[in-house]
């Protein structure tokens, strides 16, 4: 039993996913992130908000941007940040995971930012520790901070989320980014489409509140936002499409297909990009429309906001129960 969280505006100990968050809770996180966007553009980016707090980045899967982003976020708030990259043993994953969690927990961290290749693994871990846990991506389930940074990027450019038409294109089947974005955008009143070959669309995805298309031109028609996904070959068992050449021909974002979207449609990608696979280099580097770099910048601000809000809810180790 944990003690009742302090904040009533965000009454959660962990951030394990977007699913289940209310529009107000999401808006609170986005609003709080806004101020950090400004702070990060100053010469002195450092604050003392989290001075004395300990944050552990626990990554069971390789990551560049997310891990760096969490590290910078923690340090800019004045916390002590430790990075742990854990090589996973695929055989005794569950056991190793819980053992690692218990060990780290005994050192009294305040926040664990965790990435794991198995869906649900971070929920399992969060049940075994008495600090706050942030899901930095679990398998093909959720990646909540990515959805938040995507939403803030859109909101800053378009002034709103409600009523926008967003197309999420590509490897939806293997994408935690897609799932978190679908939950967030639907919660905030946007309309979501997914566009992919049928082999890369998870079954019953319509039940999550999206319209499914299998043709880029049809699906991109009138869209405000074009969100591309990375083709996650490393998660693919067997072949879901014949070749990169054919994939790019039908589903890669180039100017010809993009012409179906609104003229001011934004192009987004969670990175890392496979140029010439899901996105044409010219489109990716078109800074009039591509906000791919901006997404990375805003990612740090969003993680600062999440760290701040969750830290505020966590009592000192002496008052914690497990």
């Amino acid at each position: 039993m944990s003690k009742a969280p302090k904040s009533t505006a965000f009454p959660h100990r962990h951030l394990l996913g977007i699913e289940g968050l209310s529009p107000d809770e999401i808006s609170l996180l986005l609003d709080r992130s806004e101020k950090y966007v400004e702070q990060n553009r100053k010469a002195d980016k450092k604050q003392a908000t989290l001075r004395g707090r300990t944050i552990i980045n626990l990554f069971f899967e390789p990551s560049t941007r997310t891990q760096t982003s969490f590290e910078l976020a923690g340090k800019r708030l004045g916390a002590d940040v430790i990075n742990m990259s854990v090589a996973t043993s695929s055989v005794r994953k569950g056991e190793t995971l819980i053992d690692t969690a218990m060990t780290l927990n005994a050192m009294h961290p305040d926040v664990l930012a965790v990435r794991h290749p198995d869906s649900g693994a971070i929920k399992l871990l969060s049940d075994k520790v008495n600090c706050a846990v942030i899901n930095g991506g679990d398998g093909t389930h959720e990646h909540p901070t990515q959805a938040l940074l995507d939403a803030l990027t859109i909101r800053r450019r378009k002034g709103r989320l409600e009523g926008l038409l967003v197309a999420i294109c590509g490897d939806v089947l293997h994408s935690r980014v897609a799932r978190s974005n679908i939950h967030l955008l639907n919660t905030m009143g946007a309309r979501v489409r997914v566009i992919a070959p049928r082999t890369l669309v998870p079954s019953s995805i319509e039940r999550l509140g999206v319209e499914v298309f299998h043709d880029m031109r049809a699906g991109l028609q009138d869209c405000d936002i074009v969100m591309m996904l990375r083709l996650q070959s490393e998660r693919m068992q067997g072949n879901f499409f014949p070749s990169v050449r054919e994939y790019f021909h039908f589903f890669g974002l180039d100017y010809e297909k993009l012409a179906a979207a609104k003229p001011d449609a934004l192009i987004m990608h969670p990175g890392p990009m496979n140029r010439g696979v899901e996105i044409d280099s010219l489109v990716a580097d078109d800074f009039g429309r591509s906000v791919i770099r901006e997404q990375v910048e805003i990612g740090v601000a969003v993680r600062m906001a999440v760290l701040e809000i969750l830290s505020a809810n966590i009592p000192p180790p002496a008052d914690r129960n497990l």
Binding site: P197, R198, T199, H214, G238, N239, P242, F250
Partner: peptide, 12 residues
């Protein structure tokens, strides 16, 4: 393989 083929072909 046939499952994927049917599904992929249905895309088009």
């Amino acid at each position: 393989v046939l499952r994927r083929a049917l599904s992929y072909a249905a895309t088009f």
